[in-house]
Design a protein around this nucleic acid. Sequence first.
RNA 1: GGAGAGAUGCCCGAGUGGCUAAAGGGGGCGGACUGUAAAUCCGCUGGCGUGCGCCUACGUUGGUUCGAAUCCAACUCUCUCCA
Length: 419
Amino acid sequence: MAEHALKSPFLREAEARGYIFQCTDLASLDAAMCAGPVTGYIGFDPTADSLHVGNALAIMMLRLMQRHGHRPIALMGGGTAKIGDPSFRDEARALMSPERLAANLVGIESSLRQFLDFESSNSGAMLVNNADWLDRLSYIELLQDVGVHFSISRMLSFESVKQRLEREQGLTFLEFNYSILQSYDFRELNRRHGAVLQMGGSDQWGNIVAGIDLVRRTDARQVFGLTTPLVTTSSGAKMGKSAKGATWVNAAKLPVFEYWQFWRNTEDDDVGRFLRFFTDLPVEECTRLGALQGAEINEAKKILATEATAICHGREAAEAAAETARQAFETGTLTADLPSREIPAALLNEGIPAFRLFAEAGLVASNGEARRLIRGGGARLNDRPISDENRLIGTGDLVEGALKLSSGKKHHLLLRPRT
RNA sequence: GGAGAGAUGCCCGAGUGGCUAAAGGGGGCGGACUGUAAAUCCGCUGGCGUGCGCCUACGUUGGUUCGAAUCCAACUCUCUCCA
C-alpha cells in the first residue's frame, strides 16, 4: 500500500497496527476523517450463536473508531443470513431454520455488547439488523431500483465467485443475490445513519465495492471501503478455527479460562502481530514484546492473553483467568477458578469407573474416547495419571470437595458433587 | 427436455462381490522433546459392552446373492455439455 502520510489519528493507528489491507480511496477517507466524525460499519453474519476470534479484527476496527471519536455501527445480517454469502466458499451453506436464526441473533448481539459500548450517547455506537429493511423488500422494485446497476459479467469476474465457478461447484441464483443485498445495506445505512464507510475482511472486498458503486450511481455520493487482512498463524492455519470448534467469545460457549488459554498458546512468530491486532497496548510496546526471544516470549504471551481477554470478558475476569493459569501450570495447584461442572453426588457415592466419569464430565465425547485417552496415558485425576480405565472413583477421591480431571496437559475440569 | 459424469468416515481421497469399520493423506486428540510455542518423532482416531463380540456406517429405497460400498432398478441431489 502506498504511503499517504495519513493525518487522521484513526487511520494512522489502524495502519500502524496493520489493520488496513485495502482501501478504496485512502486519501479522501483520511480527509473526511480529519474533517469530523465519520460513521462506519461492519456486518456480522449470524451463522452461529456467538462470534469467534475470527471476527476479532473486525471488532477491533469498530472499537478503534469509537476510541477516536468516530461512530461505529455493528450490522447484524439477520436478513442476509437467509441468503448466505458465497464469497470464497466452496459450497453453499445450508439454510438455517427461523428459530435457529433468531437464537443466533441473540447470541451475536450479546457477543458484540461484550466489546462495544452501545449505551452511552456520546459515542453513538449503534447495533442494527438488516432484516429490518431487507425482509420487506419487494422483488420487482428491488430489481428496478438496484438490479439494473449490477452487471452480471462484472459480478462473475470477482475472484470471490470466480473460484467457486472454476471449482465446478455451481452457484445458485439465491447466493448470487447476496452481493446485491449487501450493497443495498450500505446504501440504506448511508441514507438512514449517514454511514460513509464499510469495513470488513479482505474476502468482503467484492461485496464492499459493489455497495460503493450502488451508492454512487443511485445517490451520487462518495462512500468508502476498507478491508482488514486475513489473519492466519505463522504456520499457515486460519486463526481460531480447529476441527474441535471455533474459539468463541461468548462465555457460555467457551469458558473465559479457555479463551485466555487460546491466546496464551499463540505461536512465537505471531506474538507481536497479535498484540498489535488484538490488544490496545501502544504499538511500540507490542513490537518490543513481540521481539523477545526464547522462553522470554512467554511473558509476552501472557500479556497478550490477559489484554485480549480483558477486551472480551472484562479486566477482572481476564486477571482471574491469568491467575488460574499461573497456578495450574506454574505451581500445579488445584484452584477453584478452573472450568467446573457439577455431577450428581449419587454417582460418587456409588463409585464410578474412571472412563465413565471422563465421559460424564464432558471432557471427552464418548466412553470409548475416554478409554483411549486413559490407555494413551493422557488422563489424570487430581494431577495423578490414571492407569486403570475401570478404576472406581468415589467420594474418597475428593480434594477440597472437588475432583480435578485432566485430559492432556491443558484441559482441566473441576467436578463438584451436587446433592 | 437430451447426453454424460458423480455422491465413500470430520475433510480430501482409494476401493468395483467375501480377507472392508473400509488404503493413504489432512485435521483432531494423546505421548515424547521443549518454553502451556513451532518443527520433529510415536500412538490413537464410529458407538456400546470389552481384547471374544454386538450395533451402526459408503446419497435414498428396494432387488439379485450364502454374502454388496462394490451387481441391478427406481428415486434424490450435484456437476459438465447440448437444446
